[in-house]
Protein backbone atom coordinates (compact mmCIF):
# COMPACT_ATOMS: atom_id res chain seq x y z
CA UNK A 1 0.00 0.00 0.00
CA UNK A 2 1.32 3.44 -0.85
CA UNK A 3 1.85 5.48 2.30
CA UNK A 4 -0.09 8.72 2.75
CA UNK A 5 3.17 10.60 3.11
CA UNK A 6 6.65 9.31 2.54
CA UNK A 7 9.61 11.39 3.62
CA UNK A 8 12.76 10.31 1.82
CA UNK A 9 16.19 11.41 3.02
CA UNK A 10 15.03 14.92 3.75
CA UNK A 11 17.63 17.44 4.85
CA UNK A 12 16.83 21.04 5.73
CA UNK A 13 19.52 23.62 6.28
CA UNK A 14 18.86 27.15 7.40
CA UNK A 15 21.45 29.80 6.85
CA UNK A 16 21.50 33.52 6.64
CA UNK A 17 22.58 34.67 3.20
CA UNK A 18 25.72 36.75 3.29
CA UNK A 19 25.58 40.25 1.87
CA UNK A 20 28.06 41.51 -0.71
CA UNK A 21 30.46 43.03 1.82
CA UNK A 22 30.28 39.92 3.95
CA UNK A 23 30.98 37.71 0.94
CA UNK A 24 34.04 39.74 0.06
CA UNK A 25 35.23 39.61 3.65
CA UNK A 26 34.73 35.85 3.67
CA UNK A 27 36.73 35.49 0.50
CA UNK A 28 39.52 37.59 1.94
CA UNK A 29 39.47 35.35 5.01
CA UNK A 30 38.44 38.22 7.29
CA UNK A 31 35.16 36.65 8.34
CA UNK A 32 33.98 33.12 8.87
CA UNK A 33 30.93 32.15 6.79
CA UNK A 34 27.52 32.46 8.45
CA UNK A 35 26.73 29.37 10.46
CA UNK A 36 24.36 26.80 9.00
CA UNK A 37 21.68 25.14 11.12
CA UNK A 38 21.02 21.55 10.19
CA UNK A 39 17.40 21.45 11.24
CA UNK A 40 16.83 18.12 9.52
CA UNK A 41 19.61 15.73 8.68
CA UNK A 42 18.72 12.86 6.38
CA UNK A 43 15.28 12.10 7.81
CA UNK A 44 13.19 9.27 6.37
CA UNK A 45 9.76 8.39 7.66
CA UNK A 46 6.45 7.30 6.27
CA UNK A 47 2.92 7.89 7.49
CA UNK A 48 0.26 5.44 6.38
CA UNK A 49 -3.34 6.22 5.59
CA UNK A 50 -5.40 6.68 8.74
CA UNK A 51 -2.38 6.39 10.98
CA UNK A 52 -1.33 8.68 13.85
CA UNK A 53 2.42 9.13 13.89
CA UNK A 54 3.82 10.93 16.90
CA UNK A 55 7.04 12.92 16.67
CA UNK A 56 8.74 13.62 20.00
CA UNK A 57 11.89 15.43 20.94
CA UNK A 58 13.23 18.41 22.83
CA UNK A 59 13.87 21.96 21.62
CA UNK A 60 15.92 22.16 18.46
CA UNK A 61 15.42 18.54 17.46
CA UNK A 62 13.76 19.54 14.18
CA UNK A 63 10.28 18.21 14.89
CA UNK A 64 8.52 21.42 13.91
CA UNK A 65 10.66 21.80 10.80
CA UNK A 66 9.68 18.28 9.79
CA UNK A 67 6.00 19.16 10.21
CA UNK A 68 6.39 22.30 8.13
CA UNK A 69 8.20 20.44 5.37
CA UNK A 70 5.41 17.88 5.18
CA UNK A 71 2.76 20.63 5.21
CA UNK A 72 4.57 22.25 2.29
CA UNK A 73 5.27 25.47 4.18
CA UNK A 74 9.01 25.11 3.70
CA UNK A 75 10.98 23.33 1.00
CA UNK A 76 13.53 20.70 1.93
CA UNK A 77 17.16 21.45 0.99
CA UNK A 78 17.61 17.86 -0.13
CA UNK A 79 15.40 14.81 -0.41
CA UNK A 80 11.77 14.34 -1.36
CA UNK A 81 8.37 14.22 0.24
CA UNK A 82 5.92 11.94 -1.57
CA UNK A 83 2.16 12.32 -1.18
CA UNK A 84 0.37 9.12 -2.16
CA UNK A 85 3.60 8.15 -3.93
CA UNK A 86 4.08 11.40 -5.85
CA UNK A 87 6.19 14.48 -5.29
CA UNK A 88 4.78 17.87 -6.15
CA UNK A 89 7.01 17.94 -9.19
CA UNK A 90 5.29 14.77 -10.43
CA UNK A 91 1.86 16.38 -10.24
CA UNK A 92 0.12 18.90 -12.44
CA UNK A 93 -0.22 22.34 -10.80
CA UNK A 94 -3.87 21.60 -10.14
CA UNK A 95 -3.14 18.22 -8.53
CA UNK A 96 -0.40 19.81 -6.46
CA UNK A 97 -2.85 22.42 -5.24
CA UNK A 98 -5.27 19.73 -4.10
CA UNK A 99 -2.49 17.76 -2.47
CA UNK A 100 -1.35 20.77 -0.48
CA UNK A 101 -4.85 21.57 0.65
CA UNK A 102 -5.33 18.01 1.86
CA UNK A 103 -2.59 18.48 4.48
CA UNK A 104 -3.53 21.07 7.08
CA UNK A 105 -1.65 22.30 10.07
CA UNK A 106 -2.83 23.06 13.63
CA UNK A 107 -0.45 25.35 15.48
CA UNK A 108 0.61 25.62 19.08
CA UNK A 109 -0.52 29.13 19.85
CA UNK A 110 -4.07 29.76 18.69
CA UNK A 111 -3.87 33.45 19.48
CA UNK A 112 -0.99 34.12 17.11
CA UNK A 113 -2.33 31.90 14.34
CA UNK A 114 -5.73 33.60 14.17
CA UNK A 115 -6.17 37.07 12.72
CA UNK A 116 -7.42 39.18 15.66
CA UNK A 117 -9.34 41.53 13.33
CA UNK A 118 -11.36 38.81 11.63
CA UNK A 119 -14.55 37.29 12.95
CA UNK A 120 -14.72 33.55 13.42
CA UNK A 121 -16.91 32.97 10.36
CA UNK A 122 -14.39 34.81 8.16
CA UNK A 123 -11.48 32.88 9.67
CA UNK A 124 -13.18 29.54 9.17
CA UNK A 125 -14.86 30.30 5.85
CA UNK A 126 -12.28 32.26 3.84
CA UNK A 127 -10.11 29.38 2.65
CA UNK A 128 -13.09 27.10 2.01
CA UNK A 129 -14.67 29.74 -0.21
CA UNK A 130 -11.43 30.44 -2.02
CA UNK A 131 -10.95 26.75 -2.79
CA UNK A 132 -14.56 26.12 -3.83
CA UNK A 133 -15.37 23.85 -0.91
CA UNK A 134 -18.56 25.81 -0.52
CA UNK A 135 -20.45 28.63 -2.21
CA UNK A 136 -21.31 32.05 -0.88
CA UNK A 137 -25.02 31.30 -0.36
CA UNK A 138 -24.17 28.15 1.58
CA UNK A 139 -21.28 29.69 3.49
CA UNK A 140 -23.11 30.34 6.74
CA UNK A 141 -24.38 26.78 7.02
CA UNK A 142 -21.00 25.42 5.99
CA UNK A 143 -19.16 27.42 8.65
CA UNK A 144 -21.73 26.38 11.24
CA UNK A 145 -21.10 22.74 10.41
CA UNK A 146 -17.32 23.13 10.77
CA UNK A 147 -17.76 24.93 14.09
CA UNK A 148 -20.08 22.26 15.44
CA UNK A 149 -17.62 19.58 14.37
CA UNK A 150 -14.86 21.35 16.31
CA UNK A 151 -17.11 21.64 19.36
CA UNK A 152 -18.03 25.32 19.04
CA UNK A 153 -21.52 26.75 19.21
CA UNK A 154 -22.28 28.36 15.80
CA UNK A 155 -24.10 31.26 17.49
CA UNK A 156 -20.60 32.58 18.28
CA UNK A 157 -19.64 32.82 14.62
CA UNK A 158 -19.70 36.64 14.58
CA UNK A 159 -17.31 36.99 17.47
CA UNK A 160 -13.62 37.87 17.38
CA UNK A 161 -10.86 35.50 18.54
CA UNK A 162 -10.15 37.50 21.72
CA UNK A 163 -13.68 36.78 22.94
CA UNK A 164 -12.84 33.11 23.29
CA UNK A 165 -10.85 31.14 25.87
CA UNK A 166 -7.59 29.41 24.93
CA UNK A 167 -9.25 26.05 24.41
CA UNK A 168 -12.02 27.55 22.27
CA UNK A 169 -9.46 29.43 20.19
CA UNK A 170 -7.70 26.15 19.51
CA UNK A 171 -11.07 24.80 18.36
CA UNK A 172 -11.36 27.73 15.92
CA UNK A 173 -7.98 26.75 14.47
CA UNK A 174 -9.25 23.18 14.10
CA UNK A 175 -12.50 24.31 12.46
CA UNK A 176 -10.50 26.42 10.01
CA UNK A 177 -8.32 23.44 9.10
CA UNK A 178 -11.35 21.13 8.70
CA UNK A 179 -13.12 23.65 6.46
CA UNK A 180 -10.92 22.81 3.47
CA UNK A 181 -11.68 19.09 3.89
CA UNK A 182 -8.18 17.78 4.55
CA UNK A 183 -7.47 14.10 5.08
CA UNK A 184 -4.33 14.78 7.07
CA UNK A 185 -3.65 17.07 10.01
CA UNK A 186 -0.24 18.09 11.27
CA UNK A 187 -0.55 19.09 14.90
CA UNK A 188 2.48 21.04 16.06
CA UNK A 189 2.37 21.23 19.88
CA UNK A 190 -1.35 21.78 19.51
CA UNK A 191 -2.19 21.13 23.15
CA UNK A 192 1.02 22.41 24.74
CA UNK A 193 -0.30 25.80 25.80
CA UNK A 194 -3.63 24.54 27.14
CA UNK A 195 -4.61 23.84 30.74
CA UNK A 196 -4.72 20.19 31.73
CA UNK A 197 -8.51 19.93 31.79
CA UNK A 198 -8.78 21.65 28.39
CA UNK A 199 -5.94 19.58 26.95
CA UNK A 200 -7.99 16.44 27.56
CA UNK A 201 -10.96 17.97 25.72
CA UNK A 202 -8.89 18.85 22.64
CA UNK A 203 -7.18 15.46 22.56
CA UNK A 204 -10.61 13.84 22.67
CA UNK A 205 -11.68 16.05 19.78
CA UNK A 206 -8.69 14.84 17.74
CA UNK A 207 -9.59 11.23 18.53
CA UNK A 208 -13.24 11.79 17.57
CA UNK A 209 -12.33 13.51 14.31
CA UNK A 210 -9.98 10.72 13.43
CA UNK A 211 -12.82 8.25 13.71
CA UNK A 212 -15.47 10.38 11.99
CA UNK A 213 -13.38 11.66 9.10
CA UNK A 214 -10.77 8.91 8.85
CA UNK A 215 -7.99 11.45 9.27
CA UNK A 216 -4.26 10.79 9.20
CA UNK A 217 -2.21 12.65 11.78
CA UNK A 218 1.33 13.72 12.32
CA UNK A 219 1.31 14.64 15.99
CA UNK A 220 4.32 16.70 17.05
CA UNK A 221 4.89 17.24 20.76
CA UNK A 222 7.51 17.40 23.46
CA UNK A 223 5.04 15.74 25.82
CA UNK A 224 5.65 12.01 25.86
CA UNK A 225 2.48 11.19 27.77
CA UNK A 226 0.32 12.95 25.19
CA UNK A 227 2.14 11.34 22.27
CA UNK A 228 1.92 7.93 23.89
CA UNK A 229 -1.79 8.33 24.28
CA UNK A 230 -2.73 9.42 20.79
CA UNK A 231 -0.18 7.77 18.48
CA UNK A 232 -0.02 4.43 16.70
CA UNK A 233 3.64 4.85 15.91
CA UNK A 234 6.25 7.18 17.38
CA UNK A 235 9.48 8.66 16.05
CA UNK A 236 11.97 10.13 18.52
CA UNK A 237 14.14 12.96 17.21
CA UNK A 238 17.37 14.42 18.52
CA UNK A 239 19.18 17.32 16.88
CA UNK A 240 17.74 16.92 13.43
CA UNK A 241 17.79 13.13 13.22
CA UNK A 242 15.36 10.36 13.97
CA UNK A 243 17.08 8.20 16.58
CA UNK A 244 14.31 5.67 17.08
CA UNK A 245 10.98 4.73 15.58
CA UNK A 246 8.55 1.99 16.54
CA UNK A 247 4.94 1.12 17.24
CA UNK A 248 3.82 3.00 20.34
CA UNK A 249 3.52 0.00 22.67
CA UNK A 250 6.85 -1.37 21.54
CA UNK A 251 8.66 1.94 21.92
CA UNK A 252 7.40 2.59 25.44
CA UNK A 253 7.93 -1.00 26.57
CA UNK A 254 11.28 -1.66 24.89
CA UNK A 255 13.07 1.61 24.15
CA UNK A 256 16.31 0.74 22.35
CA UNK A 257 18.09 4.06 22.05
CA UNK A 258 19.78 5.46 25.19
CA UNK A 259 18.19 8.85 24.49
CA UNK A 260 14.70 7.37 24.34
CA UNK A 261 15.39 5.51 27.56
CA UNK A 262 16.58 8.70 29.23
CA UNK A 263 13.53 10.61 28.04
CA UNK A 264 11.17 7.96 29.36
CA UNK A 265 12.96 7.99 32.68
CA UNK A 266 12.73 11.75 33.04
CA UNK A 267 9.00 12.14 32.48
CA UNK A 268 7.46 13.18 35.76
CA UNK A 269 4.94 10.47 36.57
CA UNK A 270 1.99 10.63 38.84
CA UNK A 271 2.56 7.20 40.31
CA UNK A 272 6.02 7.92 41.68
CA UNK A 273 5.64 10.24 44.62
CA UNK A 274 8.73 11.74 46.23
CA UNK A 275 11.02 10.29 43.64
CA UNK A 276 14.72 10.92 43.42
CA UNK A 277 15.57 12.88 40.30
CA UNK A 278 18.86 11.85 38.73
CA UNK A 279 18.97 13.62 35.46
CA UNK A 280 21.04 12.74 32.43
CA UNK A 281 23.89 15.15 32.41
CA UNK A 282 24.68 17.83 29.92
CA UNK A 283 22.89 20.34 27.80
CA UNK A 284 21.15 19.86 24.51
CA UNK A 285 23.92 20.90 22.10
CA UNK A 286 23.34 23.77 19.72
CA UNK A 287 22.12 22.66 16.30
CA UNK A 288 24.66 25.17 14.94
CA UNK A 289 27.49 22.92 16.06
CA UNK A 290 26.15 19.42 16.61
CA UNK A 291 28.59 16.88 18.05
CA UNK A 292 30.37 14.56 15.61
CA UNK A 293 29.29 10.97 15.02
CA UNK A 294 26.20 10.18 17.04
CA UNK A 295 24.77 13.54 18.17
CA UNK A 296 23.89 12.09 21.55
CA UNK A 297 27.33 10.72 22.44
CA UNK A 298 28.50 13.55 24.76
CA UNK A 299 25.49 12.90 27.03
CA UNK A 300 25.25 9.16 26.56
CA UNK A 301 26.20 6.93 29.51
CA UNK A 302 27.14 4.11 27.12
CA UNK A 303 29.22 6.10 24.64
CA UNK A 304 32.17 4.30 23.05
CA UNK A 305 35.06 5.83 21.08
CA UNK A 306 33.30 4.82 17.88
CA UNK A 307 30.24 6.94 18.71
CA UNK A 308 32.26 10.16 18.40
CA UNK A 309 33.43 9.26 14.90
CA UNK A 310 30.82 7.29 13.08
CA UNK A 311 27.19 8.25 12.62
CA UNK A 312 25.01 5.27 13.54
CA UNK A 313 22.56 4.25 10.84
CA UNK A 314 18.86 4.16 11.55
CA UNK A 315 18.19 0.51 10.95
CA UNK A 316 15.74 -2.25 11.70
CA UNK A 317 16.37 -3.85 15.10
CA UNK A 318 13.05 -5.67 15.43
CA UNK A 319 9.84 -5.90 13.51
CA UNK A 320 8.90 -2.35 12.52
CA UNK A 321 11.33 -1.03 15.13
CA UNK A 322 14.18 1.14 13.95
CA UNK A 323 16.96 2.66 16.06
CA UNK A 324 20.18 4.52 15.36
CA UNK A 325 22.71 3.31 17.92
CA UNK A 326 26.01 1.43 17.69
CA UNK A 327 25.05 -0.59 20.75
CA UNK A 328 22.61 -2.55 18.62
CA UNK A 329 25.35 -3.89 16.36
Amino acid sequence: MTPRVEIRHVTKRFNRKSGLVERLAERAGLKTPNPVVHALDDVSLSVNNGEVVGIVGESGCGKSTLGRVVAGIIEPSEGDVLYHGKTWQDMSPQQAGHARLAVQMIFQDPSSSLNPRHRVDEIVGAAALRHDKTTRPDLQAYVAEQMRRAGLDPVMSRRFPHQFSGGQRQRIGIARALAVQPDMLICDESVASLDVSIQAQILNLFLDLRRELNLTYMFISHDLAVVEHISDRVAVMYLGRIVEEAAVADLFAHPAHPYTRALLQEIPRLDTTRRQYSAISGEIPSPLAPPSGCHFHPRCPFAMPRCAIERPKLREIGSAHRAACHLND
Partner: peptide, 8 residues
Protein backbone atom coordinates in the same frame (compact mmCIF):
# COMPACT_ATOMS: atom_id res chain seq x y z
CA UNK B 1 12.25 23.83 29.86
CA UNK B 2 12.79 20.53 28.10
CA UNK B 3 12.13 17.29 29.93
CA UNK B 4 15.76 16.32 30.49
CA UNK B 5 16.66 19.86 31.61
CA UNK B 6 13.60 20.03 33.88
CA UNK B 7 14.75 16.85 35.60
CA UNK B 8 18.16 18.40 36.22
Amino acid sequence: LDVTIQAQ
